[in-house]
Design a protein around this nucleic acid. Sequence first.
RNA 1: GGGGACGUAGCUCAGUCCGGGAGAGCGUCUCGUUCGCAACGAGAAGGUCGGGGGUUCGAUUCCCCUCGUCUCCA
Length: 885
Amino acid sequence: MKTNEIRNKFLKFFEKKSHVIWPSDSLVPQNDPTLLFTGAGMNQFKDMFLGKGNLKFKKATTCQKCLRTGDIDNVGKTASHHTFFEMLGNFSFGDYFKKETIEWAWEFLVQELKIPEERLSVSVYKEDQESYEIWAKHIGVPKPRIYQYGEKDNFWPANAPLLGPNGPCGPCSEIFYDQGEKAGCGRKECEPACDCDRFVEIWNLVFTQYDRTEGGKLVPLPHKNVDTGMGLERMARVIQGVQTNFDIDIFNPIIKSLEEITQLKYNGQIENAMLMRRIADHVKACVFCISDGVLPSNEGRGYVERRLLRRAIRDGTQLGVTDCFLYKLVPVVSNVMQEYYPDIKQRRENIARIVKSEEEKFHETLELGTARLKELMDALQKNRQKFLSGQEAFKLYDTYGFPLDMTESILNEKGFTVDKDGFENELKKQRLQARTSSQMTGQVFDTGPLSKIKDISKGTEFLGYNECACEAKIIALIQGDQLVDKVIAGSEITVILDQTPFYGESGGQIGDTGVLESNGNHVRITDTKKNNDFILHIGKVVKGELRTGSLVHARIDTQRRDSIRKNHSATHILHYVLRKVIGQHAEQAGSLVTPDRLRFDFHHFSGLTKEEILRIEDMVNEIILENVPVAVKELSIQDARNAGAMALFGEKYGELVRMASIGDFSKELCGGTHVNYSGEIGLLRIIGESSVAAGIRRIEAMTGIAALNRYREKERILQEMCDILSTSEDKLIPKAQDLLSELKNLHKEIHKVKQKEIRGKIDSFVENAKEVSGVKIIARKLEDATVDDLRKTIDILMKSAKEMAIVLGTAQDGRVTIVAAISPGLVKRGLHAGAVSKEVAKLVGGGGGGRPDMAQAGGQWVDKLDEALRFATELLSKKLLDGVS
RNA sequence: GGGGACGUAGCUCAGUCCGGGAGAGCGUCUCGUUCGCAACGAGAAGGUCGGGGGUUCGAUUCCCCUCGUCUCCA
């Protein structure tokens, strides 16, 4: 039985048991900032478990995309560890409980999948007698095959009663598949809890029936939930009777491609196989990440993805592949997964491009590291040492991303070794440091103010598609992170209403601004955000007060909203045109729609040419001028897809979606607000094109009056330029060029004149120089000179005699600058230009210093310069007479 | 969330430790050599030393903040 078949059978089975087949959540959890990635089927139902969700059904079944990196070190080594995997599950939100759950699980395994009963064993929580009885009496599982374990194995979250976290929890019952004595440790008394491979856990049934409160007290929940999880790949392995998850049908083609790329044979036992398995796992994980909108980057989710890619690339080099190769696996993954994940197929070229560009980047990193390591080896050689210190190896790893095993093998080749213990020590230090300053709470369920609001309301109804004002009731007021009943004038506040015309920031469209009013009370709303199904009005009470439960008149700034609508519809047209002009791969990767401008990020591998930009701008404006109708309608996701609507990378859509179509051109799924006819946009001008990340470009544009104003402003500047240069527009450029070259010539002229002037002075300086024991002392003032002039003068003066001491000063812009120079012979005798300049500068209210032969100083008292220079002469004379040496 | 490194000419980088003339190679342009190309020779243009603040007479250099890139840990 193929993996796809198992997935289908599972979902259909529970549909028959009146469950709703619900789509997988994105790998990027929506509305859950505590999680990097979706790691279990129940994540998207957290609110439903707490009785706060607003889904219309109580029974659901899903096949959830999951990503976990906790066990990453085991991936490839064991038969069943993955980073990315699919989790089948059935859920009850206060509906059925243990009996049906167990009954259906058994029915599915034995009747649908035809697993022989004697192969199955189960475990229950030692204090969960109810489940034990159901298994033993109702199902008839022989008692020796029902195991009773503690809270480490059969409680969710593991060890929750003792260690927490607080929140919903409960006992669980696990079902195991027995692979037979040969597969495991061989001990007669072997059982599911044994570490060996004999018993495979195939299904975990969690009965969420308690709320854990402070101190580990378990309070029964008023409505009991079921949350089950079956690893799809593991199930497929059992059904297909193969050794590891990587031998099932959806991994076979990936492994096969790897055999072709590496020219090596996949053999389950040897080291190479482990590497191949890991590559297969990681590349699949990355394909799904990218398709859910996560790009490789240096932080957060993007960084996790980058690490996965890099591990896979490293494994590839271990297998002897030196070129980029991972991207070649993307179409293979897409092929095996396309049936249930059509998006992956549609986007495989973009995904492959992103993977390839990341591979190229990593090869660069490796090259840099290799070069650095060579330097280190040279240093070792020079010092006749054989060991590279742990610190150095760690720095190579930590700062330059160069893997230890690579460092080691390069060193070994040249007869060096590395201090591995030292390396481990450094690594431990860093771990400790990171852990102690980590802020992760470990909280599974949200307990903030919004969670409390969910007890009393399902969400805010958005009326803003048709209305710009309405009456509304205040459901809640949040100040800081506290719920309050009343707020007074002057307070910063977040207001939640039962219904509202305000659009909460989402889908790239910025939130509305406006006012909330009721007799004598006035709140200015400066921003609106969306959280789950609530719309948060953020603002300040200007006058009067607000109370929970009271009524207000909510009104948005319609002019601002109009500008936003223009920009939003224009964004859709731009998206459509972009794909026409540069190719279908140019899909949206991000978007920001504000009243002033729009920003659109899209997938593309190189910068746009001037011609392309012009063409895009022209085509967008043609559609605007055609004044085609913009229609927005609600329909089922399936109908929308059939109509050919664009869905976005990483967006998760519900059953009912809004589709915005602009004439016969663009069709996109979109929750935002739009104009009625394209002509309302007026015009669009692209004001910039740039890069945001590897493979992602950005266009910024303006529409309507804003675009007009921008070009008016440019025209004004142009006009002003013409006025200043007293010329006409057509002669502006040659005129500016003429002026510039004239300016340049003048600069040169001035320079020459100055040089001449200086030369003139130089002779008199030399003639009038004071001479002390054969050394010429010059301390003079130059009018209106720069530091550079002073230096150059000194350079010339220096040539006039063998031993000299020179101090030159100038006053410019109310500041004094002094440069001092001492000839080499005098420097040897101990005279120091730095010391001289320091002392001289004191007289002009400043300080100074520099090298023995050349130094610089400055000060503020311009009128003291002459005095300071006289002092310089005396000082130098005295030092020479005293015989500095 | 915490740490490390980097940011200087169109590109690759030196200079920063220890504050005081912003440099090299490649590339570009001009001229020369050559039948022509490659190569070579001579010369020139090109820099807010990522941005902001501070210390200082003076900051590419020291200190603080910030942005961007790379990297490790969580």
